[in-house]
Nucleic acid binder design. Structure first.
Length: 574
RNA sequence: GCGCCUGUAGCUCAACUGGAUAGAGCGCUUGGCUACGGACCAGGAGGUUCUGGGUUCAAAUCCUAGCAGGCGCACCA
């Protein structure tokens, strides 16, 4: 139950009902009213800006209006026991004990779904899509975790989600990759040294792939790249996708669907997509401007098919054909997205690295054109990860073969810490990832801090031979919360709001931040017992008050649901 | 030159998308452990929210002109 949403609706309809007695002529902006968490110092449960919003629109003094609204609320909403008018006209609201009990009982009963806001759309989320030319490096890692957690979040919230990986197994880079594998095979078989050529992949994993192919195909003699190309391509791609899938698996990520670019090309989906755009009048046959940095000698003016993406806000129109008439990468991608549109998703999401920012406008334009604006494509960019180790920045470069791979990372840091740290920052800002810090088992490491709160809950329950989520219900008469407990309950009530706002804008970093804050309240609650015996949980090997068990369960419920979304484990013992 | 992202405490970042006296962690500093696991807690100092202008009851948030940093700017993928 989202008490903020529930009471907001109650407030809105009450305003409508009392429109005349409040002397409100204009109430067409009810959606600007919101119900928030008041600042801590006020010791109230809810805070509402209704008097300020409506006061402005009707030229009424917000504080006078607030007084009138306060009376109506207290008369008509039985869940509100006390209201204070504060600041420029905020209504700070306290919930009655009965309302608190009702909410708490409902959370305890519906623990598994607590926080879900129950929307029901159909998402396709494309993420990682790392080139199948080798294992994943740390740069891929952030987008991978982001996409996975976004999927979990949207699912938790009631949506259907397909997690998709687009395999770029077509084009020049694949040729270079296969050639690299071939040359490594020659190196192994004939001791020909691997040449230093710019476009080749020098990474040593290529050697492993070469070895594997040799061992698994002993009857085949690899003597001619051209002759063996198709076979080698197939085997090499399989091998590198295997590496990538292994990386993903170890990060706890499992895609539902792998979609191959080659398949798009071979099934002539590009021709269909381009025809579709032609039919809609978004394609012209024309000339492109000379690209910046290109000399006139190298630049041939050739007539080609061009997508008019400027009609959708792009900076330039985009080529669908290369010089030789073959399709561009973009054309293939248009076809891929037409395929996605045809699969009846309501929302498409692409998770991209910062280096692909420039691509967003054209592909968003393409989806608008193809779906006649019926399907939304939302591209989210993950900024760079800067890797540190004892103060020294780590550099990575896939071409040079000196990158920090996900495997390197996993050797030092466990999956839980990687995931949590990658999420503990807005995707819009660069992320400093410090090896040393992430390995620490202390407050410096937020993962442990949150896990530790859960472990503490379990340690008390263990000593009492109790378990979490056993039938627990509050009765009307006996209910008294101390200050710390009140704070925790309020924080727990906020959870559905966090889910709502983080799924609206895909701001998933709010979840780890929130879980950290909840854990802080819990650790503080725990430590109160050291200063004040009244705050001890246990007396004569029994729990002192039922409320304590309730708090334990509430915190545990939110920690579980939250960490489930993050895909981070929550051990009972540490 | 153009596009996108960022600029908030000494450092790393939040701020419910326009709300109240801008909050956390680290660092600094003062306290608290023979324990329901101190792998923690309580307190203090620390701010012209990059700068100038604008919009309004209210701006870190919106508009505008700049400044600084990052990432891009192909017929590559």
């Amino acid at each position: 139950m989202n008490i903020f949403e529930y009471h907001l609706q109650e407030i809105q309809s009450l305003i409508l009902k009392n429109k005349d007695s409040l002397e409100l002529e204009n109430i067409d902006n009810l959606n600007k009213i919101n119900l928030e968490v008041p600042p801590e110092k006020f010791d109230f449960d809810l805070s509402c800006n209704v008097a300020m919003v409506l006061g402005k629109l009707n030229s009424l003094n917000p504080k006078d209006l607030a007084e009138k609204i306060k009376k109506i609320f207290l008369n008509e909403i039985s869940s509100f026991s006390e209201i204070q008018i504060a600041g420029p006209g905020f209504l700070n609201i306290k919930l009655s004990n009965l309302a608190l009990i009702k909410n708490i009982n409902s959370i305890l009963k519906n623990n598994k779904t607590y926080g879900s806001n129950k929307t029901s759309e159909n998402f396709n989320i494309e993420f990682v899509s790392a080139n199948p030319t080798g294992p994943m490096h740390i740069g891929h890692c952030r987008g991978a975790v982001y996409g996975d957690v976004l999927s979990n979040l949207l699912k938790f919230n009631g949506n259907k989600v397909t997690k998709e990986y687009y395999i770029n197994d077509y084009g020049n880079q694949i040729y270079n990759f296969v050639e690299s594998v071939y040359l490594r095979i020659e190196e192994i078989n004939s001791k020909k040294p691997f040449p230093k050529k710019e476009n080749l992949y020098p990474g040593l994993y290529i050697k492993d792939i070469a070895k594997k192919i040799i061992e698994e195909n002993k009857t085949i003699i690899f003597k001619d790249l051209k002759k063996n190309f198709q076979f080698l391509k197939k085997k090499s791609l399989e091998a590198s996708m295997e590496l990538i899938k292994k990386d993903l698996k170890q990060l706890g990520i499992l895609h539902d669907n792998f979609f191959s670019e080659t398949e798009i090309v071979e099934k002539d989906l590009v021709d269909k997509a381009v025809q579709d755009l032609k039919d809609k009048n978004y394609v012209i046959e024309g000339y492109l401007k000379r690209p910046k940095g290109e000399t006139d000698d190298n630049w041939k003016k050739t007539k080609r098919l061009i997508f008019k993406s400027t009609l959708f806000g792009d900076d330039n129109d985009r080529a669908l054909q290369k010089d030789d008439g073959t399709w561009t990468y973009f054309a293939n991608d248009v076809a891929y997205h037409m395929n996605k549109v045809s699969r009846n998703y309501t929302n498409l999401v692409n998770i991209l690295g910062a280096d692909h920012t420039g691509y967003i406008k054209r592909i968003t334009a393409a989806v608008s054109a193809l779906s006649k604006d019926k399907v939304k494509l939302n591209c989210k960019v993950c900024q760079l990860v800067k890797l540190f180790k004892s103060g020294e920045p780590y550099k990575m470069s896939k071409r040079a073969g000196e990158f920090i791979s996900v495997q390197d990372l996993l050797k030092e840091v466990d999956k839980d810490s990687i995931r949590f740290m990658m999420l503990n920052r807005s995707n819009d800002v660069e992320l400093d990832f410090d090896f040393d810090k992430v390995k620490e088992k202390s407050k410096d490491n937020p993962v442990f801090y949150v896990q530790y709160a859960y472990a503490r809950i379990n340690s008390v329950l263990r000593s009492l031979n109790l378990k979490l989520f056993q039938k627990l219900e509050l009765e009307k008469n006996s209910f008294n919360l101390n200050k710390s407990e009140k704070k925790i309950v309020r924080k727990v009530f906020e959870w559905p709001k966090i889910i709502e706002s983080s799924s609206r804008k895909f701001d998933i970093h709010k979840i780890p931040f929130y879980l950290y804050e909840l854990s802080t309240l819990f650790h503080s609650y725990w430590s109160k017992g050291n200063e004040d015996k009244n705050y001890k949980f246990i007396e004569n090997s029994k729990i002192k008050r039922k409320e304590i068990l309730v708090i334990f369960n509430l915190v545990a419920i939110v920690l579980q649901n939250g960490m489930n979304i993050l895909g981070v484990s929550l051990p009972e013992k540490m």
